[in-house]
Simulated assay, not measured.
Amino acid sequence: MKTNSVEFGKKLKAIRTEKGFSIRQTALQAGTSNPYISQVENGKRNIPKPETLKKLAKGLRISKEEMFKLAGLEVSKPTNIEYIGSNFVNIPVIGEIACGEPITAEENISDYVPIPANVVKNGNYFILNCVGNSMEPTIANGSQVVIREQPDAENGQIAAILLEDENTATLKRIKKTKTGVILMPDNPEYEPIILNEDKRGRILGIVKMEMKRF
């Protein structure tokens, strides 16, 4: 079915609003500008070309197939590929973390993984690849964890913490004291990390789900 630019823009805005994304956040995730997203939503731009549609799909965390369908484009479906339906959401996998950038900025994203929509509702989410066995047996080396973005965590929760001096994210269990925060490994062979003036860090979010690789 042919779609015009006004209808397409309304559909994009509805998806963005439903996911709770701002125009700025969508633009950052898509690698475009705020004015461009606004113009597309208001029907002031022609329906984008396929390459730009792929960027918009990343910005809204939906599959490119769903985006092409919104734009009225037919996509051939090879029989050996399972496509993401409306019950799944593409969640970004964070590779290297760029200093000073939001965790889900395009510069940080290495891939996307489809996750059931009911798992990742009520918030923004990202995925981290687990390297090392400091959280074993709770979280296995080589697995992936789904993180819900939030700036704080409760005692005992496993969180993703950005170690600012190393510019890397680590998974540890939170232990709050009167003087600060201690990052506790579940593996007793590893030493806790004490956050202080010399070792700064900030919480990126809490672990909601582990996905083991086979």
Rank of each mutant, 00 (worst) to 15 (best):
I115L: 00
A153E: 07
G201H: 07
L183H: 05
N80D: 15
L60C: 04
K64Y: 10
P137K: 06
P92Y: 01
N46W: 12
R173N: 02
T26M: 12
P48N: 03
V181W: 02
C99G: 14
K208D: 08
G43Q: 06
V6T: 14
I23L: 15
R213A: 07
S86V: 11
I203K: 06
S22D: 14
K54G: 10
P50I: 06
P78L: 12
L183D: 06
Y190E: 03
N42W: 12
R61I: 02
K176T: 00
K178Q: 09
G9F: 03
K64Q: 13
G59P: 04
A105M: 11
A159S: 08
N87W: 10
L53E: 03
E7A: 15
I203E: 05
G132A: 05
K11E: 11
P78K: 09
P48E: 03
V146Q: 01
L163Q: 08
G9N: 06
N4A: 12
N87G: 14
K2I: 09
K55D: 13
N34F: 13
N46Y: 14
S38T: 10
I37E: 08
G95S: 08
V119D: 11
I97L: 01
F21L: 11
P50D: 13
G142D: 02
I139T: 01
Y83E: 11
P137L: 09
E136S: 07
I158V: 10
P116M: 01
Y125S: 08
E107V: 15
